[in-house]
């Protein structure tokens, strides 16, 4: 599995006039949340990349933002790549859903909503998955306080 470099991808995205890149790193791209769906569709549908598999989505709770990490894999080219989004709204974090692009995002987005409280707009079934309805707070946030 070859991990693609961020600068290579950014160059190809720029050549195809896809906007939304905020920061180019050695092995990942930080992109604007509004252009996530456009870049995701481009990376999936372009035969040169063919990222047909979303390996996982992770959320990181930083003091100033929530960072979402999308790990993409192309089985045909045996390549992987990482997209990152920074959501600076700590009170009501909201990110566009990619369920209709990669169906495997369904349960992972629900888990992130359940444990970290990030809402995915456009998700067909945005509700808790591990915890029960009525649970107060989001336990994987750093400011979560448990009763015990």
């Amino acid at each position: 599995m070859v991990s693609l470099s961020g600068s290579d991808i950014a160059a190809i995205l720029g050549k195809n006039s896809v906007a939304g890149i905020i920061q180019v790193n050695r092995d990942n791209l930080v992109i604007d949340s509004q252009s996530l769906r456009g870049i995701a569709s481009f990376l999936k549908d372009t035969p040169e990349f063919d990222f047909d598999y979303l390996s996982h989505i992770t959320v990181i709770d930083y003091p100033v933002s929530f960072e979402l990490v999308y790990q993409l894999i192309s089985f045909r080219h045996c390549q992987s790549f990482i997209l990152k989004i920074r959501c600076r709204d700590k009170e009501t974090p909201s990110i566009p859903s990619v369920v209709d692009i990669w169906q495997g995002a369904d349960l992972q987005e629900r888990e992130i909503f359940d444990l970290a409280g990030v809402v995915f707009e456009g998700h067909p079934n945005m509700k808790r998955i591990l915890l029960w309805e009525g649970f107060e707070g989001y336990p994987l946030r750093k400011d979560f306080k448990n009763d015990d």
Binding site: L131, F135, F144, D148
Partner: peptide, 9 residues
């Protein structure tokens, strides 16, 4: 797991 949000103590 005592103190976890999900576990019965």
């Amino acid at each position: 797991f005592k103190g976890s949000y999900a576990v019965v103590p």
